[in-house]
Amino acid sequence: MEKIQAGLQDASGFLPQWLIGVGVLVVAVLGALAAHRFLVALAKRAVGPRRSVAIAILDKTYGPTTLAACLAAVAIVTPLAPLNGDLSNALAHSFAVASIALIGWILIRSVDLAAARYLQRYRADIAENFLARKHVTQVRVFKRVTDTLIIIIAVSAALMTFNSVRQYGVSLFASAGAAGIIVGLAARPLLSNLIAGVQIAVTQPIRIEDAVIIENEWGWVEDIASTYVVIRLWDWRRMVVPLSYFIERPFQNWTRDAASLIGSVNLHVDYSADVPRIRQRLEKTVHESKLWDGSVVNLQVIDANSRTMELRALVSARNAPEAWDLRCEIREKLIAFLRAEMPQALPRDRADLALPSADHSLRPIGARS
């Protein structure tokens, strides 16, 4: 240590003192980066490719450990670097801000690792995955809210290390007047969505991959962030909705308690239609379909007007996409059946035509005089 200090003092005879100090810090940081990279590679080789969990932890923590290695190197060589007062104070302040950022980074990575570890016990690749979607929704929402709070606290702590910002913050909190009201009103949407996120995580009116109808659009819940929800619509569009929407306004959730759904197919037929025969054809068609879940099949006459009867076929499927496809299949095959085997059942118009008789009265066409 003394030899290093002596060598730096000798070099200060022909180089500026601040340049030597900066050079020492740069060399220390580069050495820390190289040593960190070597140690991480050595650790990955030691655990082997089969230890996927350990590899994932090393990858997730690579950024925070890199920053920690650099800060450790700077802390070690700072006493050796010939720095003047201003440069030393700036370095100390930067070190404090970087340390706060490192703590926040470590906390966020810890939350991510804990969430991933918790969700490993649940499988989302099965048909009845309600328990998995429930826990995925809760963990994601709580993780987003926690990450947001950690970032806000870390940024606030870093800003408070600056004298001007600290004084402004103290005066702002001390005033508690109009400025506080303005700040509260400006932050109300953010706070209301954060609180709504906690409510959704606890009560769960929606979960990840729930099928919902919102604003007359049908889609699936793709992501639940800290302040908004992303809905993946049926035509691959994305609808972004504030979290507070699902607390304050009504919407349809097709998979709240179960994924299976009952779909309806409405047909208009003539009064001469053989309804029992159509019902038999419906039952035969759904038994031949791979989309039917084997639970519900029914055909009823639900309405009648001056021209036609309205039939409603009810069929069930395992989930919303299969229910839609099954409805389309049933509609197509029933129409083909009516056209091919029961054409008299297709809707048609009737007219009663009459001609004047010899005594100027009206008689139907075809009637004998």
Rank of each mutant, 00 (worst) to 15 (best):
A6G: 08
L8F: 08
L8K: 07
S12C: 08
S12K: 06
G23R: 01
G23C: 09
A28N: 01
A28T: 06
A32Y: 06
H36C: 00
L39A: 11
V40M: 13
A41G: 10
V47S: 10
R50H: 06
R51A: 15
S52H: 12
L58W: 02
D59W: 04
D59N: 11
K60H: 04
T65A: 13
T65I: 06
A69S: 14
C70L: 04
A73S: 07
V74G: 03
A75S: 13
I76D: 12
I76C: 09
I76V: 13
P79C: 07
L80Q: 03
A81K: 01
L83D: 03
L87N: 11
N89R: 00
L91N: 10
L91A: 10
L102A: 09
G104T: 06
W105M: 14
L107V: 10
L107M: 10
I108T: 12
S110N: 03
A114G: 06
A115T: 12
L119M: 15
L119F: 11
L119E: 14
Y122K: 00
A124T: 15
N129P: 07
L131W: 05
V136C: 04
Q138N: 08
V139D: 14
V141E: 04
R144D: 15
T148P: 05
L149F: 00
I152S: 11
A158T: 01
F162R: 07
N163P: 07
Q167T: 00
S171K: 14
A174G: 01
A178R: 00
V183N: 03
G184E: 07
P189E: 15
P189R: 10
L190H: 13
S192L: 12
V198R: 00
I200Q: 07
A201F: 01
V202L: 06
P205D: 04
I213P: 02
E217M: 11
W218L: 10
W220T: 13
E222A: 10
S226C: 06
V229I: 04
V230H: 05
W234M: 03
R237N: 15
R237C: 09
V241P: 06
P242W: 00
L243Y: 02
L243V: 02
R249Y: 12
P250Y: 08
Q252I: 15
T255Y: 01
R256F: 03
I262D: 15
S264C: 14
S264N: 14
V265N: 01
V265H: 00
A273S: 12
P276Q: 05
P276D: 10
I278S: 08
Q280W: 06
R281K: 06
T285D: 08
V286T: 04
H287M: 10
E288N: 02
S289P: 01
S289R: 00
L291M: 08
W292F: 02
W292Q: 01
D293N: 05
Q300L: 10
Q300F: 09
V301E: 13
A304M: 08
A304D: 14
N305G: 12
R307G: 12
T308M: 08
L311D: 11
R312Q: 12
V315D: 04
N319Q: 10
P321N: 08
W324N: 15
D325W: 05
D325Q: 12
L326N: 03
L326A: 05
C328E: 15
I335N: 15
F337D: 15
L338T: 10
M342H: 06
M342D: 13
M342R: 04
A345T: 08
D349M: 05
L353S: 04
L355Q: 08
P356H: 05
D359V: 12
P364V: 04
I365P: 03
I365K: 02
A367P: 04
R368W: 07
